[in-house]
Simulated assay, not measured.
Amino acid sequence: MFVLVNLKTYPCDPVAVAEAVRDVNESTDARVAVAPQAAHLERVAETGAETWAQHVDPIDYGSNTGHTLAETVAEAGAVGTLINHSEQRLKLADVDGAVEAAERADLETVVCANNPAQIGAAAALGPDAVAVEPPELIGTGTPVSQADPDIVEDAVEAAQAVDADVSVLCGAGISTGDDVVAAGDLGSEGVLLASGVAKADDPTAALEDLVAPL
């Protein structure tokens, strides 16, 4: 099971969370990674935690002021990137371009989508994984696996119908180990979460709770 912690722009200590991710990753069979803000990538990667970017743009080297270049993300120590998170939506052509840019930089990719239909479209672009995240549940503490489990099962079916090699992650409202287990029972190979760890007083304890049932 893949547990990817997105720190968004929460006012947490990214290095402290990364150290917790590193330590818990070493004590479990689950794969645990963290996605900090772009400015924190290098510091986070230096902790030894598996580090992901929150976004890359569909660009190459050149005149692209204010954009995030995949190669720069990789040079900072990231091994993968989120694409098309509900808080950083892209047009389909730009999602395709961002996936190509990430692959050019040898970054693993997770493309986010709102529903099973979008998951199918995202899977057709050839990412390593897709993540289904109904935006209305993000940050609520109510997991999609509980609020509407059909969305997860249908997302898995939609991705497999397009490309069986594309993994499906479950996002939105994940905060406990039971949520992770429920996501797995519905066919998900991982979870994408944020506030449950980034806002926790004790990130290590929060992560240990997430992976304990696995």
Rank of each mutant, 00 (worst) to 15 (best):
S63Y: 03
P36Y: 06
N84R: 09
A18I: 10
L4G: 07
A113H: 01
G141L: 11
V44P: 02
L4A: 14
D179G: 05
G48P: 08
G173D: 06
L41P: 06
P135T: 12
E87D: 15
A147Q: 06
P11N: 10
I174L: 11
A70Q: 04
D106N: 13
G66A: 12
G141H: 11
A122K: 04
I138R: 03
T81H: 00
G48V: 09
T140D: 13
K8F: 07
A122P: 01
P127H: 08
S86Y: 08
L207D: 04
G48W: 02
A161S: 10
P127W: 07
A101Y: 02
D179R: 02
A45W: 06
G184R: 04
C170K: 03
Q118V: 04
A20C: 12
L125D: 04
L125S: 04
A53G: 13
V15W: 06
Y61G: 06
E108L: 15
E133L: 06
D150K: 11
L90E: 14
I138V: 15
Q146D: 14
V166Y: 03
F2N: 13
A122W: 01
A113V: 07
G77C: 08
D60R: 13
P135R: 07
A102W: 04
E42R: 12
D106Y: 04
P135E: 10
P149F: 11
A113F: 00
Q160N: 11
C112Y: 05
G177M: 02
L125A: 06
P116K: 02
D150E: 15
A198I: 08
P135Y: 05
L214F: 12
Q118S: 14
A93E: 15
D13E: 11
D179I: 05
G190Y: 01
I119P: 01
V197R: 01
D94S: 14
G97S: 12
C12P: 03
S145C: 14
E136L: 09
A102H: 03
A159M: 05
A16S: 11
Q88R: 15
L92C: 08
R89L: 15
G139W: 05
D57H: 01
A49W: 01
N115G: 05
T142P: 00
E19W: 03
A123F: 04
T81A: 10
V168Y: 02
V32Q: 05
A45Q: 08
A53E: 03
A117N: 10
V44C: 07
A74L: 00
H85P: 10
L41S: 11
N115W: 00
A93P: 01
K91G: 13
V132P: 00
V99T: 09
G126H: 04
I59G: 05
T9I: 11
V95Q: 11
A194G: 14
Q37C: 10
D60S: 14
